[in-house]
Nucleic acid binder design. Structure first.
Ligand SMILES: [Mn+2]
Ligand SMILES: [Mn+2]
Ligand SMILES: [Zn+2]
Ligand SMILES: [Zn+2]
Lengths: 140, 140
DNA sequence: TATGCAAATGCAAATTATTTGCAAATATTA
DNA sequence: TAATATTTGCAAATAATTTGCATTTGCATA
């Protein structure tokens, strides 16, 4: 059984053509993407943009996908919840995103929980820099 | 000379009543706030909301303020650039924000720069949890 | 101090991102 | 296959931000 079917089954969401399309787009993306990008990928399927939003909302609700915003951007982005903790490196020039695996914060977060008495749920680390390609463009 | 005047002088922005109002609101806020919140603080001054946005934009441009988005929120927030590196702890329930000082990532970021060949400019760490007050509300 | 002008502001309208109401279509279950 | 709750499309609403343009203001200079 495909992972889409599994996700629908576990969550109790109905297995619709539109949800499958959105799921597939998310599945093949290796970095978070926004609703508009998903919509454009699916122009040939003529799925409505508000349906895309509703599907994303339902996926987030069911923990099938993760919603976030990055940097100064004011647009929400989504990725499949692959249950693996990762962080992102964003190019300040070309806005490309690469995922970085491994977390340097495990111990820190544990300590922080003790000192602040917060019950820590998750954390997000975004690192901004200039990617090698954009550095090259600047000559030198 | 007040720090507002200094900021205007260094940046070359004109010293207007509206800019001073926005600056003062940012100065007395200890966590990032959004344009609407600033606007409401300044209702008595009857400054226009688009002016607030334009002022914030100019402050960010001149590095007087920092713009960001947090968590899943789609609204930009702003804080005075106090030149001190800090991170934020956000309550998942009441959405309160507290600043945490000290950075556990200095060495990590340096290493990352070497392995990825990115020129690292900055990073943002957001930690989400449940604050002691909200934990208490849930009883036990 | 008065004048000139670029920069900044107010106001209304435009844009962008997202959400909602409602009627029609569809998936699931019996 | 029928019953029904869910989902979708479409148009309109809302929220956040941006823009055009006429008017006002800060600041440099005469
Ligand atoms: Mn981590
Ligand atoms: Mn840090
Ligand atoms: Zn780049
Ligand atoms: Zn709280």
């Amino acid at each position: 059984m495909g992972s889409f079917q599994q996700a629908m089954q576990r969550s109790g969401l109905k297995r619709t053509k539109q949800r499958e399309c959105v799921y597939n787009v998310l599945e093949k993306a290796d970095v978070p993407i926004n609703a508009e990008q998903i919509y454009k990928e699916l122009l040939s399927e003529s799925i409505n943009l508000s349906t895309v939003y509703r599907i994303l909302e339902s996926f987030v609700e069911k923990d099938i996908a993760i919603k976030a915003t990055l940097g100064q951007s004011v647009t929400a982005i989504y990725e499949l919840n692959r249950q693996e903790h990762k962080h992102h490196l964003i190019c300040a020039e070309c806005h490309s995103i690469v995922a970085i695996s491994g977390c340097p914060l495990e111990q820190y977060v544990e300590d922080l929980s003790k000192t602040t008495h917060y019950q820590i749920l998750e954390h997000k680390l975004e690192i901004t820099g200039i990617c090698p390609r954009c550095q090259a463009k600047h000559g030198k």
